[in-house]
Design a protein around this nucleic acid. Structure first.
Length: 599
DNA sequence: CTAGGGTTAG
């Protein structure tokens, strides 16, 4: 039986030893209130400059996202040692402030504090999204000077960082991999991953085969490599040989079959997965959405919700992007509902994807209202909205938005100008477009790419300034592609420039395109000029080369799925009734339009 | 330090 202490004491009033025990796991504490209480306790017991406790406190605040508290605690310390600097760097990395992480590193150097085996992996992770070869080389030099090669974490971090720097980086990584003495599974896996990401799957396979202690990471990296390059038969062969398959292995296979267009196989594997998680659901739903299979996509989305899974930011963005590609408004709206319900409204990427989805599905007003309701917008938000307006023929509104964007101090990039020029093309704002093309580099520092030239040639051509369009093609620092010549050919058609059209045609033929669109364009040009002999000879050429113009298709989404139809299409089982209805409708419309008040 | 899904153009 236990004896109760007669006097109740406040919980913080305990021996230092007791307190230290309480603080052992402080750095893992995720409850902010508890951390704050412990912080007060630390203050009261004069432990706020203890070099073992303070880094833990910093880490705890950093987990809760309280970067300013981390900095406050750090600033209390007169002569911070390497552990404190590490904690601060790590905190900045966690809150995605890589620039600040770097400046802390520079600062510690200025105070004569050397980095240790923790500092460098943090620093490399800070820039993991945008690693420059020269930066990694610099870090490498530091590591070598300080003799930190003995730590696998350091060398693995370095190998990983090099692998993220493209071809040059991977060469350096492989050299390092060979030089380094202590290697573990992670070193091998990192190297294999780097090769896979670079597309060097053969080299990756060689290393994989050499490995004797492969783990699930190694197998999964290979699966990913084969899945991304469409080699599903090889991927499947490996998959079958795996002894320890996990969710990632299954999901990678499902994704691979989706990418290869074999959604049936993907679905079969998905149904057989022993454990599904959010990523697996996202992959299969996105695949159905991309294919326009609305019924399946929405059904699976419902089932996912029933299983109690909430989509996260990544999942939402992925599904919305797929909806945008196939024009699937139904699922898009449902996902929008989840965004509202689960409070993702402040995530910029989610809103950007939402705007794009609504715009691509033709619901401009909803796109606009999402755009206007955003608390903060980034460059992509403006770009998608401008482009959305542009392709819907709302050129003036798009340009208005463009000027508003600059008023708010956002600098346009190369994508912005594709949207701006596209807006001018679609809305017939020819002179404005030509003006933007000629000033984009001088005034905004955005160097025109081939897409911008394409728009400019289209604009000049439509205006009838054919000579200028031709000289622009000569001047441009790119080899003209089919699209460039196509734009010029369109201009020839509009302005009956038969001679030039024939010349353009010769260029287009060099591309050995089987698309007969250009042939029929040329024959239309002859027809407009009244040159009927040439019309028939060019039509003959279409027949002789066996090229066919892929006819345009329209699609429509109904409750039970998507339908495609084209000219003279009789593939639908009820096509007879459909044509009957269309006939009735157009008859009805004709009658209406003959009335005096017809619009 | 290593594995699967992730916003804009063409």
């Amino acid at each position: 039986m236990q004896i109760q202490t007669p006097i109740r004491v406040p919980s913080w009033f305990s021996t230092r030893r007791h307190l230290e025990q309480k603080l052992t796991d402080l750095h893992k504490c995720t409850d902010l209130n508890q951390v704050k209480q412990l912080h007060a306790l630390i203050y009261k017991t004069h432990l706020h400059d203890d070099l073992f406790i303070v880094p833990k406190l910093m880490s705890a605040f950093s987990i809760s996202g309280k970067i300013n508290l981390v900095v406050n605690v750090f600033n209390q310390i007169k002569n911070p040692n390497v552990h404190l600097y590490n904690a601060l760097i790590k905190a900045y990395v966690r809150s995605c402030e890589s620039k600040k992480a770097l400046s802390v590193f520079v600062e510690m150097g200025n105070f004569g504090v050397f980095g240790d085996n923790y500092t460098y992996p943090f620093l490399l992770k800070a820039f993991s999204g945008e690693l420059k070869f020269s930066f990694v080389k610099m870090v490498h030099a530091h590591i070598e000077k300080l003799g930190l090669y003995a730590d696998v974490f350091v060398t693995n971090g370095l190998i990983d960082a090099y692998c993220k720097c493209g071809v040059m980086g991977v060469v350096e990584a492989r050299r390092l991999f060979q030089v380094v003495e202590n290697k573990d599974v992670v070193s091998w896996n990192t190297m294999i991953r780097g090769l896979v990401k670079l597309g060097e799957i053969g080299e990756a396979r060689k290393m994989f085969d050499e490995m004797d202690e492969k783990d699930t990471y190694s197998w999964n990296s290979m699966l990913d490599g084969y899945a991304k390059t469409g080699k599903m038969n090889v991927a499947f062969e490996l998959f079958e040989r795996m002894s320890l398959r996990n969710v990632v292995s299954w999901s990678t296979m499902v994704m691979g079959y989706c990418k290869a267009g074999d959604i049936e196989m993907a679905r079969m594997l998905f149904d057989r997965m022993p454990v599904k998680n959010l990523v697996s659901w996202t992959i299969i739903i996105s695949a159905y959405a991309e294919k326009g299979l609305a019924k399946e996509a929405i059904g699976l989305y419902k089932r996912m919700e029933q299983e109690g899974l909430r989509p996260d930011n990544g999942s939402i963005v992925s599904m919305l992007t797929s909806c945008a590609e196939s024009g699937m408004l139904g699922l898009g709206k449902r996902v929008h509902g989840s965004i509202e319900r689960f409070g993702y409204k402040c995530c910029v990427e989610v809103n950007n994807a939402l705007i794009d989805m609504y715009a691509k599905c033709g619901n401009l007003s909803r796109a606009l209202s999402v755009f206007e309701g955003m608390m903060s917008r980034d460059l992509v938000s403006w770009n998608v909205m401008i482009h959305g307006l542009a392709v819907h023929g709302q050129g003036e509104k798009a340009l208005h938005l463009f000027s508003k964007m600059m008023q708010e101090g956002i600098l346009p990039d190369t994508v912005t100008f594709v949207g701006v020029l596209c807006a001018c093309c679609h809305a017939g704002l020819l002179d404005e477009g030509v003006h933007y093309f000629y000033t984009m580099e001088r005034e905004f520092g955005v160097v025109p790419e081939i897409e911008h030239y394409g728009c400019a040639i289209d604009l000049l051509g439509r205006r009838g300034r054919l000579q200028e369009a031709v000289s622009l093609i000569d001047e441009m620092p790119f080899e003209p592609n089919v699209k460039i010549w196509g734009a010029l050919l369109g201009a020839c058609r509009k302005h009956n420039a038969v001679g030039l059209a024939e010349e353009v045609q010769r260029h287009i033929l060099k591309f050995e395109s089987t698309d007969a669109g250009t042939f029929s364009m040329l024959s239309n040009i002859y027809a407009a000029a009244g040159d009927w002999d040439s019309v028939s000879s060019s039509r003959l050429r279409v027949k002789r080369t066996g090229s066919r113009k892929r006819s345009g298709v329209s699609s429509i989404m109904l409750d039970d799925g998507g339908y495609e139809f084209s000219v003279m299409d009789t593939s639908h089982p009820n096509s007879e009734e459909i044509y009957q209805m269309v006939g009735d409708l157009s008859h009805h419309l004709k009658q209406l339009s003959s009335l005096p008040n017809a619009v």
